[in-house]
Write a protein that binds this DNA or RNA. Structure first.
Lengths: 166, 166
DNA sequence: CCAGATTTCTTTAAGTTTCAAGCAATTGGC
DNA sequence: GCCAATTGCTTGAAACTTAAAGAAATCTGG
């Protein structure tokens, strides 16, 4: 018993290396895919990933969203969205108007041109993603979906437990 | 048969929604965890995530690495590393010297102080990660590792097939 | 040896991102 | 109605990021 506790001493203060390796692998996968998508978007459509992401959010809601909504959905800061929207309005992709009921609120929508351009990009984008995940069987995909859902819940719980607000 | 092909028409041009949803979920998970780690690093140690990541790379290799090595390992651009290293040398965390054998090459290492500080941060960091993944069973972790490995390989293959270099 | 190609790193411009501070509008309690 | 707190957004500073172009050193094949 004494011997046993000695041999295991190195990993005694709890063994958390597996979770760390998992996190690094998750990060590597995402970085890899994100970089690939970013390259293709630039090369094929000369658009940045953040702009594409913002347009993707808006495409789902024809009646438009507030900046706060976008900010929450994209999980980025308010100030970030302000700047992104500014440039997309400038380039004619977005339409922006102040809410009638609350003059603090800015409602943004895709313009007709913006929507058309986004749909064109989104169609190709979907094929890229399919190609990137080509080696995964439908069962792999289902299983990953399940495990990532569990991961998300776990992470959210951990964040909430800490205090959540800085 | 004619009827069948008509009813399926909407999803005929290939069905790739599952992969897209999987990608979005993967991205959500990573963004969520990354944000949580970023917050904690700032709050607890007043350090940014990129600096922590760079120091983590260097901690694994006491004899030091070149900027190119770091750039490849972190999957970020060369210019990015140049700036990061500049600031970390400035703050005394990194030591930098020109290689004797190749005067283009800059070798960087953690200073004694830098290493001590990193080790302190890394110990807590590992606990945060363990907490974030708390709900996953050891089996879940193994399974995720396996599926993400497969995903990584698939994504790399897809990137290579495209041409890889922009 | 030498010219051209390659590699390593830096620089530049533009854009993204966060955090913190601040302003304006709204809401809620009294 | 009024004041305080909250909410929605903007601004400013600093840092991060990429892509592209450039400088310096090395390598390669004559």
């Amino acid at each position: 018993m004494t011997l046993d506790s000695e041999t295991k001493a190195v990993e005694l203060p709890e063994h958390h290396g597996d979770e760390l390796r998992l996190w690094l692998r998750l990060l590597t996968c995402t970085t890899l895919i994100e970089g690939e998508v970013r390259s293709r978007l630039r090369e094929r459509f000369d658009v940045t990933l953040p702009r594409f992401d913002l347009m993707a959010q808006l495409d789902k809601v024809p009646e438009g969203m507030t900046l706060s909504d976008v900010s929450k959905r994209m999980m980025v800061s308010n100030g970030n969205v302000t700047g992104l929207v500014e440039r997309l309005v400038e380039s004619g992709h977005l339409d922006r108007r102040t809410s009638d009921v609350d003059r603090r609120v800015q409602v943004i929508r895709l313009t007709k041109a913006g929507r058309a351009e986004f749909r064109k990009m989104a169609a190709e984008h979907e094929l890229w993603i399919a190609d990137i995940f080509r080696d995964l069987t439908p069962k792999d995909v289902r299983e990953l979906m399940r495990l990532l859902a569990k991961t998300k819940t776990s992470a959210q719980k951990s964040a909430r437990a800490r205090g959540d607000r800085g």
